[in-house]
Amino acid sequence: MPPGFQQDNAMTEATFAPRVFSGIKPSGGLTLGNYLGAIKRFVEMQGGDFETIFCVVDLHAITVWQDPEELKRATREVAAGYLASGIDPEKSILFNQSRVSAHAELGWLFNCVARVGWMNRMTQFKEKAGKNAEKQSLGLYAYPSLMAADILAYHATHVPVGDDQKQHVELTRDIAAKFNHDYGVDFFPLTTPVIEGPAMRVMNLRDGTKKMSKSGESDMERINMTDDADTIAKKFKKARTDPAPLPESLDGLKDRPEAKNLVDIYAGLSGMSAEQVIAEHGGAGWGQFKPALADLAVEKLAPISSEMARLMDDPAEIDRIMARGAERARAIADPIVSKTSELMGLLR
């Protein structure tokens, strides 16, 4: 198993085969943050001693209004990003969430298990809703319950996530534990969040204190996975830095958010640790390091961008791959949801 995959509870180890589930929401386009924080790790997880299931979570996208045609395009683009980055639909199950009705059905069943107090503690709703919480959709408030269903519909034992999503996996564990307790079973695993890697939280190229976002005001703040080689290089060369050169040790990056972000990105793209990056480039000025980072990013990302463009020119092929993945997903999820209903006393 990759680093970070510890079996942290006896029930998971004894009862459930190792299975990974994760997904990305199709809204706003894919960024370098999606690649380093998620997709690159997904690719590395393929072919191990566990089954890998990756999803485009389009039901989560509609918690806020989406233009229907744009949502279709964005869903295909996320799938293209998966495929272009190396997700193999023969090694992994790849599909879009709405093709598998088990997600929505189990989401409702979990709405009846989860507690309102648990939802009130979800920090992402507070951040997204802001002062207009009363005007938000019920779906936006309750979507952590659907996220739990996404995971537990497959009895997933591990979920690769960033720090900002860890709370949702903890909620998934709470729902699984309460269901098991309420119905006197060991039916759902207590899923383990997997948080690892030097660039788990990729920050804004213009403000290192803010996360790189699909919805930032300026396109120069982020690297889009659809950016071509020239655009990638330009953005890194113009990324905000401070006057001092790179330090000789990691301690020297403290209180230097832009410098730390660029070091972390270099580490994530190269497969090195941040310590190794500093050992190799410590003392270098930005006129030396940023071109080196730009060259590395172009080498790693430009082929993905080109392949995404090719795939998007053939949407029927993307749809075929996701439809086949959905068939495989239903074969796993439908019996689990059916058994859940039976345990709850519902006649099927």
Rank of each mutant, 00 (worst) to 15 (best):
L152E: 00
R115W: 03
F125P: 07
S85V: 10
G162F: 01
L146A: 13
D163Y: 04
A84G: 01
I151A: 03
Q165H: 04
P89Q: 13
L83S: 06
I87C: 11
V116R: 12
L106N: 01
S137Y: 08
S101D: 03
N111C: 07
I93M: 12
S98C: 01
R121F: 03
R173C: 06
A80H: 09
S85N: 12
A156F: 07
R99D: 01
C112R: 14
P144E: 11
L140Y: 11
V169C: 01
S101T: 10
V169L: 06
Q167N: 10
I87Y: 07
A104M: 04
T172Q: 07
I151E: 05
K131T: 13
A156E: 08
D150M: 06
F125N: 11
S85Y: 06
R99N: 03
E90K: 10
D163N: 12
V169D: 03
L83D: 09
E134I: 03
H158V: 11
V159T: 11
D150K: 04
W118R: 02
Y143W: 08
G130P: 02
D163V: 12
E105S: 03
L152F: 00
S98D: 00
E105C: 02
V159Q: 09
P89V: 14
G117I: 02
D163W: 00
L171M: 09
C112D: 08
L171Q: 03
N132T: 15
L83P: 07
Y154G: 00
T157N: 13
D174M: 14
K128L: 01
